[in-house]
Amino acid sequence: MLKLDRICRTYRTSDVETAALDEVSLEVRAGEFLSIMGPSGCGKSTLLNVLGLIDSPTSGAYWFMGEDVARCSEEQLTLRRRSRVGFVFQNFNLIEDLDVAENVEVALLYVGMSRAERRSRVAEALERVGLMHREHHMPKQLSGGQQQRVAVARALVTRPKLLLADEPTGNLDSANGDAVLDLLGAINRAGTTIVMVTHSAEHANRARRIVHMLDGRIVEDQEIAVAC
C-alpha cells in the first residue's frame, strides 16, 4: 500500500542542515497496524507527515497506493490525500470555533458530498466513537479523551484507507488513552491501515508491527506475534 525507498528529508536554516529522515525505506501493507517508536527528534513525526502526504521528501521515492508521489506538487498531494488519509494528532487539533459535528464535517467538505450525506456520515462517525450526544458541544466543553475521540471520528468519517495517528494518547490519562487505542484497534480490524507514532512501548504493542527509529533512520522493524 505504501512503499518508501531511501527517503531523505532535510530541513535547512540559514547555516544548518538537519536530516530528519536519512535514507528511510519502509513498506506498509494494506490492513496493517504499525507503530513507530523512538526518542524525541528521531524523525517519527516527519516520517508520518511524509506518509500522510502533508510533507514531501527531499529525495528518494514514495509509492502511495501504487503511485510515485515523491515529486508531486502540494496541490497534487492534496488531491491524493482527500478521503484516503485520516489524521489524529496528539493535541487533538479541533477547530475551536466549530462544534463537534461541524469539526467532524470538515473532513467531508472537500470531497464533494451532499449536505444530507455529510450529515449522515458525521452521525455515523460520532455514533462509532460514542459521542453522538455531544454533537453540538464546543471543543472546550469536552474532556481531553472526548476531544481525541472527536478527532478520531473526524479521521474516520471519510472512510479512509489509511489512518495516521501522531501520539494520539500523548495528552491523555491512561484510561482515556486505552479507550482511544481500543477505538483505533477496532478501526484497524474493520480494514483500515493504521500507522501510529508513540513513545509508549505498551501502546506500541497494540500494533502488529513496530518500527524503531533513531537519528532519522529505521534501526529495527519488528513483527509482533498475535495470539490466536
Partner: peptide, 10 residues
C-alpha cells in the same frame, strides 16, 4: 492545518 489535512487546497 486541519482543513488542509482534510484535503482543502490553498
Amino acid at each position: 492545518g486541519v482543513r488542509k489535512a482534510a484535503g482543502a487546497t490553498q
